[in-house]
Amino acid sequence: MKQWIRQVLATALLAVALGAMAGISWPGMASAGEESTQVAAVPAPAIPEAKPGTECVRDPEFMRRNHMDMLKHKRDLTVHEGNRLPEFSLNECIACHAVKGDDGKNVTIADSRHFCRSCHDYAAVEVDCFQCHASRPEAGDTALQSSPHGMNVLALSEFLKGVQE
């Protein structure tokens, strides 16, 4: 088969497959996300916005895929080695991704609008983190101290090496 025919076929197949799996197509992915959501006509998870004027500790794209590994690695670093750098700290995520409820207070994990539940409910993921961890910042909490991309390249590659272990 000629190279270009193969490519056309593959693309067509992919399109069909995507259509079939519309229910679980991943919304918000890159910029094409919104289109595919419209095509799918299935409600996408409403992901609450983070604190205005901030940036995530990594690309949102990267975070969507890797937040669980980053959190689990950071968890071990903190508890066993005393690493208190704000980056990837769960408290930081909670502080910057806090969602205000109707009463003007930040919602807890008991509320389905909580940032960490927005996708998890949708994807049937259940984490036990908030049996122990506070799911909203304390009133007057100053936890938020991240500067976006604060970790230099070397530190990040070390970090990722740790994740792979």
Binding site: N91, D128, C132, H133, A134, P137, E138, D141, A143
Partner: peptide
Amino acid sequence: DQKPYAPRG
């Protein structure tokens, strides 16, 4: 409503 710096469960 645990303390953010002292998770307990």
